[in-house]
Design a protein around this nucleic acid. Sequence first.
DNA 1: ATCTGTAGACTGAGCGTTCGCTCTAAATAT
DNA 2: ATATTTAGAGCGAACGCTCAGTCTACAGAT
Lengths: 199, 199
Amino acid sequence: MRTIHAAKHDERRAQILAAAERCFARRGFHGASIAQICKEAKISPGHLYHYFGSKEEMITAIAESGLVYTQARVKQFTESKTDAVSATVSELENLRDAQRRAGPGVLLDILAEAARDPQVGGILQDASKGMRLLLATFFEEAQKGGDIDPDLDPQMSAAIFISLIDAGKALTVRYPDLDMDRFGKTMETMLRRFLSRQN
Amino acid sequence: MRTIHAAKHDERRAQILAAAERCFARRGFHGASIAQICKEAKISPGHLYHYFGSKEEMITAIAESGLVYTQARVKQFTESKTDAVSATVSELENLRDAQRRAGPGVLLDILAEAARDPQVGGILQDASKGMRLLLATFFEEAQKGGDIDPDLDPQMSAAIFISLIDAGKALTVRYPDLDMDRFGKTMETMLRRFLSRQN
DNA sequence: ATCTGTAGACTGAGCGTTCGCTCTAAATAT
DNA sequence: ATATTTAGAGCGAACGCTCAGTCTACAGAT
């Protein structure tokens, strides 16, 4: 018997997934072909199907890993020790930089796909629910601490914040040449006024 | 010689486009096939290609018509005679109702496609630029009239508003069961605080 | 008023290509 | 020797699209 190296297997799987993600970002989930992914991952189709049962499985795996990553960032954000408004604004800057580096990626494709494919939809909705819970709890704590307006609805405020991530992705597509520093300033104004304790 | 009836021709073209849009909304631009569109439009493939030169041409036509419609609504909004904040809030409600009726439609697909197809991208960017201009002018007028905070950056505020449309579409996908009335209230709070003249 | 030639409306079989995926067998590791 | 990994030819199906051809409505000739 030959020993199975689970770690090696997982690593290769991740490499293929990364290659697939590049292809999907370039041509969309249904526009990219298995042949292109094979070329990008330097693997034969037969071998690829040793790692993934179907193209759909690759799509859901990418959706899942992308959302897990985002959720981890949200968690990290909610554990930050600075006050809520400053943390939000600095997170906004991080988002902006990440976008400048990597472009919109596959999030818009995931959103479009989630609207019609129940499986992708379920993955997105679960992840979104989790993130909203994290954020809402964070807001509640901040309200108790007197950082932000105690009259705000934490659940709905959290939903707004999450949808602002999507808005940011869409924005770079609509306005590729937008002065992001200037935009960030106005966005910061809006969030400060929204969150701040009203007099 | 037989005369061409331009009106009839255009009408049929519009019917096909509407059928195609339903298919695209159901399966995505690349997931929907010509055969499905033909069935939905009750037309043969040969005849369909009498009206459109390619599938790509149908995609761009749909993107264009959808964005022209949105632009018209924005124009209508900017010509409303009520004060800026109320107009914004009531427009928010309209958007919400439209979404409840028709679902997210193809906007998310257009955004995803625009990120990789330069032609669709150009169409979206032109339309977005036009809408931003309209909105920015509207905000400037409102600033002169004392309706909203004169210190706001009209261009960037307009960009935020437009990306909020996209955020709304994404939101219904992320949270299909969200209490939209409650959400709308919090969104209204945010926009009021954002736009209102600060003391 | 009727006939006729012609161009537009329309069909569906089928083109070449590419799709997602399978299978056989060679290569490789134990 | 045996079990696993890997390659790539190739499967049937579906793709976007074409084309040869029928049918129909109407302008112009009679």
